[in-house]
Amino acid sequence: MKKVGTFIAASAAALLAMTGCSTPGATTPAAGNNDSDSYSVGVTFSDLSNPVWAELVQEAQEYGAEEGLEVNYVDAQNSAGQQVTQIENFIQQGVDAIIICAVESNALTDVTLRAQEAGIEVVGYTQVLENYDAQYLVNAYDTGYANGEAAAAWINENYPDEPVEWGLMDLPRFPEIIERANGIKEAIAELAPNAELVATAPALTAEEGVTNAENFLQANPDMKVIATIGGGGAVGANEGVKSAGISDYDSFGLFGIDATEQEIQNIINGEPQKTSISLGGGKAHGRTLIDMTSALLNGEEVEKDQYMPVEVIDESNAQEYYDEVYGG
């Protein structure tokens, strides 16, 4: 029985350096070549500088090696046009499956249909596709609401009788992330009515998170809370809060999503970050995507729409989570 082939780059830096290229050491199959005992899988991600997705591909590489898998990867670097070209190249190469984290889902409608018509399995990740065989998604609003709920609880515990200014790091170019941000805002408005949103700025990477946090606090020195839609922004914001001169970490609350390794370490260490929402983590996602793709290619029944778990990680369970997920 054939197995899914995958090989994915071990770091975001390498991925960015090799944009549009096959992974070193990976074997690019000839179109229609299905005579070997493995499947070929193409992977295209919207932006592999995202630390969660870098973690995902590292785990997928290790898990794939255990399973004897091979892959070609490409990084779209937030270019929808480039991603279309990447998928067209995968079709021409005759891959058996394509895993897609879309830059713009609407831009992929035609090319994903062509992939399916060519007999290629299409697996979506985080962004909803119109044409797909299976996809692994975030329940965006509920995830955001859980983050806002944690922030509101902290506000009510630490500042129950005074106005609290807070900032939001969002990413409005993705519809699903807009829903995540809406969940954050609505939870805080509902559960901590003394809180006022005074600043917003987009953040995907840690670098953006540092800059945003510094700017937020320079413009709003009384700000007590920052919520982010992802782990990259949270990791950066944690450093930005400190570099902005906040030394009493108990007085400031940072709330993230993704539960990356650095986020969890920051929570354990008592730094500004107080909670993060785990969606299973990059490592688990890498394994899930490979398992879903393998099942499709082997003719097994696969639930078409699958959703990531939502779990709040705070000081009460951060060490346990770290030990379980990251092998502390």
Results as ranks from 00 to 15, higher is better:
G5H: 11
T6M: 14
A14Y: 06
L16F: 05
C21K: 14
S22H: 15
T27E: 14
P29L: 09
S36W: 09
S36A: 12
D37L: 10
Y39L: 14
S46F: 09
S49L: 07
V52C: 02
A54M: 01
E62D: 08
N78D: 14
Q83Y: 07
Q83G: 05
T85I: 11
I87P: 04
E88T: 12
G94N: 10
C101M: 06
V103Q: 12
S105L: 03
N106A: 15
V111N: 05
L113W: 05
A118Q: 05
V123H: 11
Y125T: 02
D133I: 03
Y141K: 01
A150D: 15
A150V: 03
A152S: 07
E157K: 15
N158K: 15
E162I: 13
D170A: 04
D170G: 12
L171C: 12
I178G: 05
I178C: 01
A181F: 07
G183H: 09
L191C: 09
A203R: 08
T205Q: 13
T205R: 07
G209W: 07
A213H: 04
E214I: 03
I229S: 06
I229R: 02
A237N: 05
S243E: 12
I246R: 08
F252M: 10
G256W: 11
D258C: 01
E261V: 00
G270S: 02
S276R: 00
I277L: 10
I277F: 06
L279N: 15
G282V: 00
K283M: 04
K283Y: 00
K283R: 15
T288N: 09
M292H: 06
S294F: 06
E300L: 04
E320N: 01
G327T: 08
G327R: 02
